[in-house]
Every structure is written in C-alpha cells, then in structure tokens.
C-alpha cells in the first residue's frame, strides 16, 4: 500500500499536489494515426515481455510441425531428409503460420471481455490504430515463428535452392497471408468476444484448409471432388508459392494467386474490423 513517506507526508500537501497536477495538464492533442498504432503494438510487446508464455504457441507449433511432419511423411517420400524437406518444409511453414494466427484473435477477444477495449474506445484515437497495432505485433510473432521453421529445417539438412532471397520472399508471402487471417479472426473476435469460441471457429476453418491442401499429399492421389477443393484452397497456393520461391524456379501463377487471396481476405476484413470496432452495442 502506501510507502512510509506517504503516510508521514501531511495530507494537505498531498492534495495540493493533486490540484497543481490538474491545473498543469498537458495540452489536449490528438495522437497521430501511426503513433497510436505503434503504441498498441508496443502494448502487445509489453504483454509478451511480462508473460512470455504467450509465445509458447508461436514456438511450439512450428517446432512440433516441422519435426513431426518431416519424420511422419518423410519416409513415404523417400530419399534423404534433405530431399523430402525440399517438398515438406515450405508447406510446414505455411501451415504453422496459418495456425499461429488464431491466437491473435483470441487475445483480442480477451481485451473485449476484460474492458481494456472499452477504455481504448473511449479515447479520441483513430479507430484503425487498435487493429493496425495488433497487426504489427502479429507480424513480429509470425516472423519469429517463420525463423523457427526455417532454422530448424536448415539444421535438419534442408538446402533451399532459392537461397536467402528465395527464403525471405517466401517468408514475406506467408506472413502477409497470415496477417490477412489476423484481420479475419479480429472480425470474429469483435463479433463473438469469447476466446474459446474464436479458437474453435478458427480451428474449424484452418484444419480443413491445412489438410485439404497440397501440403502433405500430391492432389493427384485424391478423389476428384477433393482435388477441386485443393484447387481453390488459398493455403494450397500459398504453400506452392512458398515451395517455388524457396526452391528456386518460381513461376508467377501460385505467387499471384496467393497475393490475390491475401488482398481479397484483407480487403473484406479490414473495413469490417473498422466497422465493428466503431460500432456501439
């Protein structure tokens, strides 16, 4: 509670200081849109600093997926680990980041239920700042998770033909796609502010996207209808684009598809987020 100094200080002096403080208010100024976004990003980083457990998902999922998928599916593909990592690792990267996106939505739902969200909404701040700040911290998280996958792959013998530029381009593409998913989960969290529900809905979307894709299995082995699903699944295209970029020999098809999918999801969800943020229940 109070420090001894505060107890011995005369009450009149304390209250006089409050009067002075109220009179000496800093001028009222609206925070710039970028400064406010950066502040929300900093808030998320501070939360990670105080509770590093939040990063467990972003560490555990990439490690688990990379190791598990390499030894689970690697045998079926034959060759040395270096060979089958060429096929698997870009897909593992895409899937890991996609899964990790849902925890950002869960955290937003928590902010809404605890009231932190209402306090921020009661300020005169550009309404996009809260969402954009969340994206900044998400981007840092996704880059971190990507680094885990790539470094682990390299340690297990993966040698990307595309070199550093190819790997960086693939990571950028995957992170961009992940951020569009962040915007989607933000909309879900603002509609249903319940952590558990947000995670369930995200799982319901991400699990089929991950498995009905070309990440683990060649679509040619699948029944026709499933091949059609794989064909329109944006995560398939992201995985293909990452594979092409990392292993050299990138065509423009999959990369374009991925960028279009990213832009469409973001283009629908960003305005929706802004609307839901500004909405008054």
């Amino acid at each position: 509670m109070s420090t001894p100094a505060a107890i011995t200080r005369p009450a009149a002096e304390r209250t006089d200081r409050i009067d002075l403080l109220l009179a000496a208010s800093p001028p009222r100024r609206r925070a710039g849109a970028l400064a406010a976004s950066a502040t929300f990003g900093r808030r998320a980083m501070l939360k990670i600093k105080h509770d590093p457990k939040q990063l467990v998902d972003s560490i555990a999922i990439p490690i688990l997926f990379t190791v598990l998928f390499t030894y689970l599916f690697g045998g079926a593909l034959g060759g040395s680990p270096g060979d089958y990592l060429t096929m698997l690792l870009p897909g593992t990267l895409s899937m890991s980041i996609a899964i990790v996106t849902m925890y950002g939505g869960a955290r937003l739902a928590k902010d809404v239920t605890t009231g932190a969200f209402d306090r921020f909404r009661s300020l005169s701040v550009w309404r996009g700042a809260f969402v954009l700040g969340g994206l900044l911290s998400d981007a840092a998280r996704y880059l971190f998770a990507s680094a885990m996958v790539v470094l682990l792959g390299l340690a297990m013998g993966y040698r990307p033909e595309g070199g550093a530029p190819g790997v960086l381009a693939a990571v950028a593409l995957v992170v961009a796609f992940g951020l569009s998913l962040s915007l989607l989960w933000a909309a879900v969290a603002l509609l249903v502010p319940d952590q558990g529900v947000v995670i369930s809905i995200a799982n319901l979307v991400l699990m089929p996207l991950s498995f009905a894709s070309n990440i683990f299995v060649q679509p040619s082995t699948m029944p026709g209808w499933l091949q059609a699903v794989v064909e329109v699944n944006p995560l398939s295209h992201v995985a293909t684009a990452a594979r092409e970029l990392m292993n050299g020999g990138a065509g423009t098809g999959a990369v374009t598809w991925s960028l279009v999918a990213t832009a469409v999801i973001a283009g629908v969800c960003a305005p929706l987020d802004l609307h839901l943020y500004g909405r008054r229940g």
Binding site: R29, T114, D118, L123
Partner: peptide, 22 residues
C-alpha cells in the same frame, strides 16, 4: 467496465494511455 491491463505495470498502463492522448 473500463479496465486496466493487469499484466502491465502501473507505469506502463499510464504510459500507453499517455501516448494515446498524443
């Protein structure tokens, strides 16, 4: 209903809100 961030320190809470006040 307008809550503070439990996991941040008292100073950090004020600092974040101060920046949001410009």
């Amino acid at each position: 209903f307008a809550a503070l961030d439990d996991d941040l320190t008292g100073y950090e809470n004020l600092s974040i809100l101060g920046r949001l006040h410009g």
